[in-house]
Amino acid sequence: MPPSFRDGLREGFRAFLPLSVGLIPWALVTGLTMSGVGFTPLQAMGMNVIVFAGTAQLGTLPLIAAGTPVWLIVITAFVLNLRFIIFSAALARGFRGVPLGARWLSGHLLTDGAFATCLEKMLSHPDPQWRLGYYLGPSLWSWLLWQVFAFCGVMAAGSIPRGWSLEFMATIALIVLLVPMARVRPMLVAALVGGGLAVALRGMPLRLGVIVAIVAGIAAGFAAERWRGKDLP
């Protein structure tokens, strides 16, 4: 393990640690839900390891339970993860000089939290080994938390009161990521348009409204930057 990889790993982990608590209730809820639709613990953890995608898991479980055709379940999961094509493209430059196997692993481990934590450093740090470490620190930690607490949820199914609304901690974690970004005016415009449209278009089938809202938010931020006539600092 090169020393710069280890340095990056440590710094990425440290930057992400406080935010990562938001994953815990999300993983618990996913575990509870997988038990709720009748998976055995082995099936539940199999899905958790193979799919490793919170929104796609939670979004497809009701369809699986209802006996929906496989193709529709798979398309739904794909659409729920479409936003990651955008994230993946934004991060791609940060993986210059990183071997192919590590890229596949990094792709599979990509999450909202890891993306928001790592993007800036991934595009600015000169050392590929350091960048890979800085990315894998938060990503591997997310993976571990996700498996451990989903397992806790599977085991605890039925004994955690729903009234605790623990899943709201995941929303707070995303807010904590969003607040510093929205200090820059065009970013704020992007967030307002993205959030507003996601609410307005919530009735679109297959949660396609979220995709439309993200694309429109990006366009609005870009337009706001052009309109101000200067680039972001």
């Binding site: 995303l174 969003l178 993205g194 996601a198 979220v210 694309v215």
Partner: peptide, 11 residues
Amino acid sequence: YAPAAALAAIV
């Protein structure tokens, strides 16, 4: 602008 737009759209 993707992260700001996407996080807001999810939240």
